[in-house]
């Protein structure tokens, strides 16, 4: 594990954080869109849903 230097830890960690944040944002957007589609479908099937699970 000698190739794991402090600089690699720092910059690699930073890159991981940034990539994770970007992926998180992208996924949140996609997830929201998916959810809206799904909700529309479920509302069509089941009628309007309550805001949260009973």
């Amino acid at each position: 594990m000698e190739w794991v230097t402090d600089e690699l830890l720092f910059y690699g960690g930073l890159a991981t954080v940034i990539a994770a944040l970007i992926l998180l944002i992208i996924y949140m957007v996609i997830s929201r869109i998916t959810f809206l589609h799904l909700k529309k479908k479920l509302d069509t099937e089941y009628g309007d849903a309550p805001e949260k699970k009973q």
Partner: peptide, 29 residues
């Protein structure tokens, strides 16, 4: 959908936290 979300958020959170820890460790070192 919820399960996918949970997995994705867990993985990304782990990456975020793990990356943060690594970054912090690297910076301190």
């Amino acid at each position: 959908w919820k399960r996918r979300n949970r997995i994705a958020y867990t993985v990304l959170s782990l990456l975020l936290v793990g990356g943060g820890i690594c970054s912090f460790l690297g910076l301190k070192r």
